[in-house]
Write a protein that binds this DNA or RNA. Structure first.
Length: 424
RNA sequence: GGAGAGUUGGCAGAGCGGUAAUGCAGCGGAUUGCUAAUCCGUCAACCUUUAAUUCGGAUGCAGAAGUUCAAAUCUUCUACUCUCCGCCA
């Protein structure tokens, strides 16, 4: 979240940022509440000061064995007054809390202005669109022929959108996860984590999933827990409430998790196979960094995610998201899109974002500034590195042979113990 | 599921109705001098004020409600942590 003080002192900038983000959030209510709050505070603080003063004089009198009855009676009315104003204050603060959680992060000045996906800027293309001497099959057909997934039977377990990987498909899924984790740990110096897949409401609120995206999450009401939509949630919350020594920054984590998304409102879109599912696997990269370096760290985060696609030899492009496409919590974001030969389009496999102190303010994650000795909010970043389903789509389609077999890229050979996936 | 103990500043830790000791670490300063020590100040977030990183005020003891002139301290509820028992992969 943003701080109320920041909104108050930079109202025009925040409003401009909201406009660029295509947000209809109204901050004038918030500013009105802010004034009310400060008026109440002033009132209550004067009364409290009086209370403290008289209270200590009562204490003095009693110590000296004197009668303090007069003061005590007077304090009774003051106390009641305080209670009344405090109630009012609490109401105003509740209104502020309700509203401020719906205000999205500000947009970084480097972000191109635009209102929808047409405003995104392609800043890079890597590799070539693969060329086929035959008509390439789509991943569904390939999966069926090679018995890699079973979408019909998975319905018996959990319904549509919960993929079941079978045989070499299951092994390939596991190989991709292992390959990516190993790569980030050994080549990019991330620390590997295996986090819980459920998180409580506070954790969800800290990273910005709640309150706005409640409907997109699976919930377990008996235990007040939610299924995580990304490992970003548990991993970012790992340092909640901590003050991290400046010398330990940046902290970099790579975490595998299953991800659960209800995808409410997107029914009928991308219903084919693996392209949009309720449960999927992802290796997530999360960084806790010094505020001065966060944009540099965003660039390397992007490079780290790209390295996976390069190692797998898959054609992709990088988008710099325009202001209107930025997610709620992000100040700047790059999307990585891999090429699907059968779909004949690019599919998003990663978003790399800088959240600046939007998440760390909610989660109260700080570092100790060496020169001032004061604690300040750190910046958080994260990016997928990568999500498997669409990666699987691109991989199968890109490396298919005319005879229907899949010739795996060399990077996966050690993880699969084979070079070619053949028709069983 | 049952029983018990606990949750205080960055950390450690006292206080158990009169308004948060003390130690360590950090930051600032002073002083003596030299593989460092000693002393002083400061040490979340908030409001107000200021030329100011200034003065002041209020808050703050897991969270919420209550009793009281006054709550870290008493009462109730909630959350979390630990220990033991039971059940289970």
């Amino acid at each position: 979240m943003l701080s109320l003080k920041y909104i108050r002192e930079n109202t025009d900038y925040v409003q401009d940022s909201l406009t660029r983000k295509q947000s209809r959030v109204n901050i004038s209510n918030l500013l009105e509440f802010d004034i009310q709050r400060r008026n109440c505070l002033k009132e209550v603080e004067v009364l409290r000061a009086e209370k403290n003063q008289v209270s200590s004089s009562i204490a003095e009198l009693k110590k000296g064995g004197e009668n303090a009855q007069e003061d005590i009676l007077a304090m009774r009315t003051v106390s009641n007054k305080i209670k009344a104003v405090e109630t009012e204050l609490r109401k105003v603060e509740e209104s502020i809390a309700n509203d401020i959680y719906y205000v999205p992060n500000i947009v970084h000045s480097s972000v191109p202005v635009g209102k929808d996906e047409t405003g995104n800027v392609v800043i890079k293309k890597w590799g070539d669109v693969p060329d086929f001497s035959f008509k390439p099959k789509d991943h569904l057909r390939l999966g069926e022929d090679l018995k890699l997934f079973d979408f019909k039977r998975s319905v018996k377990m959990a319904g549509a959108g919960f993929p079941l990987y079978t045989g070499l498909g299951a092994k390939l899924e596991r190989a991709l996860i292992n390959f990516m984790l190993d790569y980030h740990v050994s080549k990019h110096n991330y620390t590997e984590l295996f986090p819980p897949f459920l998180a409580h409401a506070e954790a969800m609120q800290n990273t910005g999933q709640l309150p706005k995206f409640k409907d997109d999450m699976y919930e377990i009401p008996e235990d007040a827990l939610y299924c995580i939509p990304t490992a970003e949630v548990p991993v970012t919350n790992m340092h909640q409430g901590e003050i991290i020594p400046e010398s330990e920054l940046p902290i970099k984590y790579a975490a595998y998790s299953a991800c659960f998304r209800r995808e409410a409102g997107s029914y009928g879109k991308d219903t084919k196979g693996l392209i949009r599912v309720h449960q999927f696997n992802k290796v997530e990269l999360v960084k806790f960094v010094h505020p001065d370096n966060s944009y540099k760290e965003l660039e390397t985060l992007l490079e780290n995610a790209e390295a996976i696609l390069q190692a797998l030899g898959l054609h992709y492009r990088v988008l710099e998201l325009c202001s209107g496409e930025l997610s709620f919590s992000a100040a700047k974001c790059y999307d990585l899109e891999v090429w699907s030969p059968a779909e004949n389009k690019y599919l998003e496999v990663s978003s790399c974002s800088n959240f600046e102190n939007f998440q760390s303010r909610r989660s109260n994650i700080r570092y100790r500034n060496k020169s001032t000795g004061k604690s300040e909010l750190i910046h958080t970043l994260n990016g997928s590195g990568l999500a498997t389903p669409r990666l699987m789509v691109a991989l199968l389609e890109t490396y298919q042979q005319e005879d229907g077999r899949i010739k795996l890229p060399a990077a996966l050979h050690p993880f699969m113990n084979m070079e070619i996936i053949a028709i069983p």
